[in-house]
Design a protein around this nucleic acid. Structure first.
Lengths: 109, 109
DNA sequence: CACAACTGCAACCTCTTGGTTGCGGTAGGC
DNA sequence: GCCTACCGCAACCAAGAGGTTGCAGTTGTG
């Protein structure tokens, strides 16, 4: 299963697909649901949805819990945090560089 | 070239690869550089790096500017914003739902 | 019990991705 | 003017992603 060298691989990889982002949005807005139910509104098969949900689960963005003969998938939105952190960090490093550059070009302030 | 239906496809897709994240980090930390120079520190060919930089450029995360016989690639960190926004929005929708649920379960305060 | 509704597994197919090699073009240095 | 960097294009390749179909297993209901 190629144990993602970096957890961010799984995270951003999961978010790279529009269907998966839609699933996350639905789960966030309407609450937990089963794969069969989620597939009803989508132009793809239940199996395809299951695969997407598994990718999301591997990335930790979704939790799967069995309830009788259903499996309810729920959003785990806190797992988005590392992604946000990475982006903010990267942007921050860039800002610092710009800051230094600006200071250098304009030492008088 | 499959004109990414959603710009977020390109953004998250670009960030899903560790080599590309590394490139962004380097460009952010050390400033603009050429593909040849960037490839020196990586275990892949220049051509592979060029392809990665093109993906990043398509996502708007990097700008390419010709300087003599070199091409300097620079980070465009502000393009990370839509990604951050999407994540925060998704998390926020989830929080609101949790809030309503909590209010419903515990109306006494 | 019998039947309907869900899930789970597996095979298979096509298109994309990350990577390589080889070669031809162009810009600077001596 | 010649040689040495760089860049750009194209062909090619193996592996993975997204999707489908078909079928078997499990759980709830009349």
């Amino acid at each position: 299963m190629s144990v993602a060298v970096d957890a961010l691989d799984g995270l951003f990889g999961a978010l790279a697909d529009p269907t998966r982002r839609l699933l996350l949005r639905r789960l966030g807005a309407d609450g937990p649901a089963s794969a069969t139910r989620l597939a009803e509104d989508l132009p793809v098969t239940r199996q395809a949805v299951v695969k997407h949900l598994q990718v999301l689960a591997d990335a930790g963005l979704v939790t799967a819990e069995r309830a009788g003969r259903e499996v309810r998938y729920a959003l785990a939105a806190d797992r988005l945090a590392p992604g946000v952190a990475w982006m903010v960090d990267t942007g921050a490093a860039w800002d610092r560089r710009l800051g230094k550059l600006r200071a250098h070009l304009d030492p008088g302030r």
